[in-house]
Design a protein around this nucleic acid. Structure first.
Length: 211
DNA sequence: GCGTCGATGGCA
DNA sequence: GCCATCGACGCG
């Protein structure tokens, strides 16, 4: 299950850009399927690419770990909007968090992008959501951005086969019955996954409706 | 290598 | 008052 065709530096020029329909699924499905996809940033005349290796699903207003559980506010507004847009917020006064809105309009589902492996010779530490957003120069000014445009978008990489594992989400111990839900997904082959690196043996796709 | 703690600002 | 975090520091 090693990556065969695409060791670094990766020739990603023929890869297909992901469109809106890719994001219009539950955050669990999207979070799983985003592992191995390539995030592309164009800023200040340069292009940066990295392979996503870790995500977390926030499944809707009933998920007490999700900002959407507090209802529709100025901050959470874009989570309630259409899929495929960026939800970016500030945490601990200094870290921007990059999320992708999932599901149907009004569902308020989202996937937090937690870690990625830089490609094409780009040297960066993207191992953790704060570091990833900083590395990609993603800030709150990108909140609501359509992720099918040129500034920030994703590429499919159908030949890449991650070894997907799952665990509970990080930093949500306050979230009552939701704190232990196995909604963090990552590529167990990747060294760029943030800690903690413990994972459950099973990485089955959850049954539809399990959450 | 691991646990603990402080930074720092927006949010409800 | 509380965070969907990170890095520095102390330990032994």
């Amino acid at each position: 299950m090693q990556k065969k065709a695409c060791k670094q530096p990766c020739d990603t020029n023929s890869l297909r850009k992901l469109g809106h329909s890719f994001f219009q699924r539950s955050s669990v499905e999207l979070g799983l399927d985003l592992i191995g996809k390539i995030l592309v940033r164009r800023v200040r005349g340069r292009e940066y690419r990295a392979r996503i290796v870790e995500t977390e699903a926030y499944v809707g207003p009933h998920d007490s770990a999700s900002h959407a559980s507090r209802g529709r506010t100025r901050r959470t507004e874009v989570m309630f909007g259409p899929a495929g847009h960026a939800y970016v917020y500030l945490i601990y006064g200094m870290y921007e968090m990059f999320n992708i809105v999932a599901g149907e309009e009004g569902d308020a589902q989202a996937v937090l992008i937690r870690a990625a492996e830089p490609l094409n010779g780009w040297k960066a530490d993207l191992s953790g959501p704060g570091k990833l957003a900083r590395g990609f120069a993603i800030t709150r000014s990108d909140n609501g951005l359509d992720l099918t445009t040129n500034a920030l978008f994703l590429l499919d990489d159908p030949d890449y086969r991650p070894r997907i594992a799952r665990s509970k989400r990080v930093g949500v111990d306050y979230a009552k019955e939701w704190k232990d839900a196995l909604l963090r997904f990552f590529d167990a082959n990747s060294a760029a996954v943030s800690k903690p690196r413990n994972f459950s043996e099973r990485a089955d796709t959850p049954r539809p409706g399990a959450y």
